[in-house]
Design a protein around this nucleic acid. Structure first.
Lengths: 348, 348
DNA sequence: TGAAATACTGCAATCGGTTGCTTAAAGATC
DNA sequence: GATCTTTAAGCAACCGATTGCAGTATTTCA
């Protein structure tokens, strides 16, 4: 037993007294090859314990059946759902995922992009870091026509597709909902407006206020990284205000900040939604556990991931053309729960 | 500008009138090559827009700087923390991660393992699916001496390392804690005992009961997949019992089932911890949001991932030898919160 | 029956780096 | 000044699969 050397198509070829070319074709079920021969090749492969060498193949054939995924952080509920959706779709089509995180750092994003390129991924799926300013680091991909799909945190670019939801509309609706519940001083906890998701949510919030002839109050707009800590600090900020200046509702651009803000306010004796109504974004599991349950926007990470990968692969297979599709907007739903129901009776 | 062809080391070589071998060595900063020449090569590479081709290199050099990660599911808080930790450690050492999920299905696990092997990962990190019975599908790795590291859901094997926590001890302690709070009829929500984590937690629970001369009651042991739904069903099961037969505490093998069980019981008017105390496992974010806050076992997914990858890479670099290390047990902490405090005053 | 079409299979170049071995030049030693 | 080191660089085989083109056997059809 040769412990060391790999079993290659040459071993199979020698074993069957045929050429390596035939073995290669046979293993791919190329109809050029006689059915019997194919069978013999498959049997011999199994018998000899042959395992194809992917990158020998990639070297020659110029595609790797690997997609690069570059996200800000791996460990959020939303992102892990996206990845799960991506992995599923990719796996179904025989593709693999190389995954890296930028940790919200533009520099690291750049380095990771380079690695992905060097690994010659067939396509790139990317959600931008918190402070990415430009996408020069993706130039090598564009130059070599390697398709790039942006998702969630996207960047306008006319040779790649973006997978998004209507952040503007969802924020508008949720703000409108709060207004309908009688709220007049609605605070917004937002993120970096460099990122479309936060910019659009802010715009939707403002437009809804405008359309209802409500003033946009500077003091009621806080921007942060929307972490647990940021939620707690927002609560302190509110508690430090004169009672009359306090908001009567908070719309947070994510659920985490909303929930930790609620917890802190509740501990200080503020009643929710009676004193302050709450709404978040993402439909994170914690939104269903907090009491009262948090009104939020549901949008499926799984679907985002699935759509992004499916479109990318269809493009790679030539079934469709990504360059034509500029952006795909997925469905999102306003999920109304007790945290925002000032008027009606709260339900779970 | 040649749009199509890649820029290769040959282009650099021609450009500088030196050999490709020198370029190859120069790019790797091989001290055999004169410093000036190295500089010239680096400059030319940048100027020509050279990007190394990883798999051409892998083909010859026999290592890919890629690690395979095979998990049951991507979208759980714990697993995404593990992945984040892994990615971090891997990135730091110049390694990449190919990630796939088995979706708790042994068959898919097998297929994914094969793909990973074909991609010639330098090492494999795996947490077993819910119903994996054996690890024959990892034989190709063992045969070719590709190191395998199990984490969390492990399998005894004397040529690979396992990264675990002391599930038995943690479960023992948490049960002991509940007993000290005066609980006598402690229910356990467990998972498939095929998996060490659930088996060990069950054993720890039982041993604690034994050591306190408490009976192990058949009706108070439920096994499930520990999903939200399973938590709800466990609650219904409890509510269906005659009040005197009901448990006075529930120890769940994960937080998700514990939390949804609590929510359902609370809705039915059961007081926690007065009527039934609760303890979970994992320190999932929801455990800090549920009221009362859930007593649980904290163990850092990030550390698990980090440790697994670091050990694997050290082995690959020859700095240490995995075959000697049979298992690494990481620290875990009992986090006591209000859900189990029958005696003392609950605190957040 | 002979020519053309069809069905298989093989030859050999190729993908882009890597590396053992050799060679050439410069420097050191006595 | 001859021999030995040391340093730097090149030659060419190699990794394992793929594929355009060519070659041979078999079938088809007039």
């Amino acid at each position: 037993m040769p412990e060391n050397r790999e079993v290659t198509i040459y071993d199979i070829a020698k074993h069957l007294n045929i050429s390596a070319a035939t073995v290669s074709r046979g293993l791919k079920n190329n109809p050029m090859i006689n059915k019997n021969t194919r069978k013999k090749i498959a049997d011999a492969a199994k018998q000899l314990g042959y395992q194809s060498n992917t990158f020998a193949s990639s070297l020659r054939s110029k595609h790797t059946h690997t997609l690069g995924v570059l996200v800000p952080r791996l460990n959020s509920y939303f992102m892990s759902s996206v990845l799960a959706g991506m992995e599923n779709a990719a796996n179904r089509h025989g593709y693999n995922l190389i995954i890296a995180q930028s940790l919200e750092d533009a520099e690291k994003e750049k380095l990771n992009a380079e690695t992905m390129f060097n690994k010659r991924v067939d396509g790139l799926l990317i959600s931008l870091s918190y402070n990415t300013q430009h996408i020069n680091h993706l130039e090598p991909f564009f130059k070599r026509k390697i398709p790039v799909v942006f998702f969630d945190r996207v960047y306008p670019h006319n040779e790649s597709t973006s997978i998004v939801i209507n952040n503007y509309g969802a924020a508008y609706n949720i703000t409108q909902h709060l207004i309908e519940q009688g709220c007049r001083r609605i605070m917004h906890l937002g993120g970096n407006v460099l990122r479309n998701v936060y910019k659009d949510r802010l715009d939707g919030y403002r437009q809804a206020l405008n359309d209802n002839r409500l003033p946009v109050i500077q003091q009621l707009y806080l921007t942060s990284n929307l972490s647990e800590q940021a939620g707690i600090e927002a609560a302190r900020y509110i508690l430090d205000m004169a009672p009359d200046d306090r908001p009567d509702a908070v719309f947070s651009a994510n659920d985490t900040a909303a929930v930790y803000c609620m917890l802190t306010l509740k501990a200080a004796g503020i009643r929710i939604p009676e004193d302050i109504a709450f709404a978040g974004f993402n439909n994170d599991p914690i939104s269903k556990v907090i009491e009262p349950n948090l009104t939020t926007v549901d949008y499926s990470g799984d679907t985002v991931g699935n759509t992004a990968v499916t479109n990318l692969i269809n493009h790679l297979k030539g079934d469709s053309n990504l360059y034509i599709t500029n952006s795909i907007t997925l469905r999102s739903d306003l999920v109304i729960r007790a945290s925002s129901l000032k008027k009606q009776i709260a339900r779970n």
